[in-house]
Amino acid sequence: MRHIISILMENESGALSRVSGLFSARGYNIEALTVAPTEDPSVSRMTLVTNGTEQIIEQITKQLNKLIDVIKLLDLTQDSHIEREHMLIKVRATGSAREEVKRMADIFRGTVVDVTDASYIIELTGAPDKLDAFIDTLGPKLVLETVRSGPLAIARGGRRLAI
């Protein structure tokens, strides 16, 4: 099952490689990983998407907690949460496709952020499956390049991951 684990860790050089090294050494899977400093610059927040059986996820969270640089973590999948991913997509925009692509972007609530006579860059935010759907809708002939942030996630309501 897919799990999103959010991790607060010391913002130290090498902290990221401790996490990625742990996953490769123990044969765990990383589907996506994002990391950036928080409002406290000494702390980074990492959002990690992985999958595995309940037992594997339990080991992953225990092993992560064992890393000295990890301050706190939360398996967001255990409870309701908001998940968003950001995408920039460069799309072929010539001839009749030019109007069609713009219309699609509007339907998906994307914004055109760059225009040339042959292409658009569209910015799109949403749950990962919404971004997938947009790519599928345009199809491989129109999609020139994509870049995705990987999911960000935060627990709904009172549940907090903070120091």
Binding site: Q55, E58, Q59, K62, Q63, N65, K66
Partner: peptide, 11 residues
């Protein structure tokens, strides 16, 4: 003392 040792190999 190590939570990661518990239920690692045997539940």
């Amino acid at each position: 003392i190590d939570p990661a040792s518990i239920s690692k190999n045997v539940k």
